[in-house]
């Protein structure tokens, strides 16, 4: 068994320098995603590992009236322990579905979002909420909408060579939020995905409609969502059918089981809006 080189940067600039020098090194934050699928006695790690959980710059939380900012190495458990209403309800629902309390003490929000193999539990809720993430690389830092962490093919597209520093969530009010996890809860299998919905209506007219569904691939269909905006509720039967058909068609690339479950969820949403 070959040992890995493990680095412990003590500052963000030091981390960035390591990432620049070793582009293939794996960032080790909570480590739950790396180790959970492994059951051998030894932990299989890549040749170079950069352990960042001690970096204080990545563990800050800042709360204003309009948004909350959470450092990438803040654990899921710590986020859930922030005061009531510190984070949007949809996001809190997503975090509560992650593992167990013991796992949530290790898992970090950065690790959850920066996964390259699949979308983890937080992404759909953050996509609906139009959250931003601060990414930093050698050339500097920038804010990126979480939706851009999904490629045009729906696969995860976290930019290589970048560090996720923090997350910024707007604290908007929503009339309806729905969060459901389908498939196996404990382990992210190919048939595991998270469904998130957030809607707003003013005087019986839909003013916001956001729907995201993600597991191994992500579905966030803004062109369909835009057709909901301005519709009067309840939806007419023809409108309901048209939307159902569009969503069902868009889900063609999902696995048969996920396609079925996505369809059931969408139908439930449309039923509610048609009442």
């Amino acid at each position: 068994m070959r040992a890995s080189e493990v680095y412990f940067p003590d500052s963000l600039p030091a981390l960035l320098d390591l990432v620049r020098r070793m582009p293939d090194a794996v960032i080790y934050s909570g480590g739950t995603e790396i180790l959970r699928g492994q059951s051998e006695p030894y932990a299989r790690l890549p040749p170079e590992v950069i352990s960042i959980c001690g970096l204080s710059e990545l563990r800050q939380v800042a709360l204003t009236e309009r948004f909350v900012e959470i450092g990438a190495c803040v654990t899921i458990a710590e986020i859930l322990e922030l005061r009531e209403n510190a984070v949007p309800e949809l996001f809190a629902l997503a975090l509560r579905g992650i593992g167990t309390p013991a796992l949530r003490s290790l898992a970090t929000i950065g690790g959850n979002l920066a996964s390259t193999s699949r979308f983890m539990d937080a992404w759909p809720a953050l996509a609906c909420l139009d959250a931003l993430v601060e990414l930093r690389d050698a050339s500097g830092s920038r804010w990126v909408n979480v939706n851009r962490l999904a490629g045009s093919d729906g696969a995860p597209d976290f930019p290589a060579g970048n560090i996720l520093v923090r997350l910024r969530l707007p604290l908007d009010r929503w009339d309806l939020v729905v969060l459901r996890k389908v498939g196996t809860r404990d382990y992210p299998s190919k048939d595991t995905a998270v469904f998130a919905l957030a809607t707003k209506a003013e005087k019986g007219i839909l003013s916001e409609f956001r729907l995201a569904f993600a597991g191994q691939i992500a579905l966030r269909l803004r062109e369909i969502e835009s057709k909901f905006i301005g519709r009067r509720l309840p939806l007419e039967s023809k409108q309901r059918s048209a939307f159902a058909e569009e969503y069902h068609e868009a889900a063609a690339d999902l696995s048969p089981r996920l396609r079925l479950q996505f369809g059931t969820l969408v139908d439930g949403v449309l039923d509610l809006l048609s009442r």
Partner: peptide
């Protein structure tokens, strides 16, 4: 781990430095 419940099987030893 620092007062928080954690599964030690998911912690490489290097993770508990300090």
């Amino acid at each position: 781990l620092d007062g928080r419940l954690a599964p030690s099987c998911l912690l490489p030893v290097f993770r508990v430095r300090g």
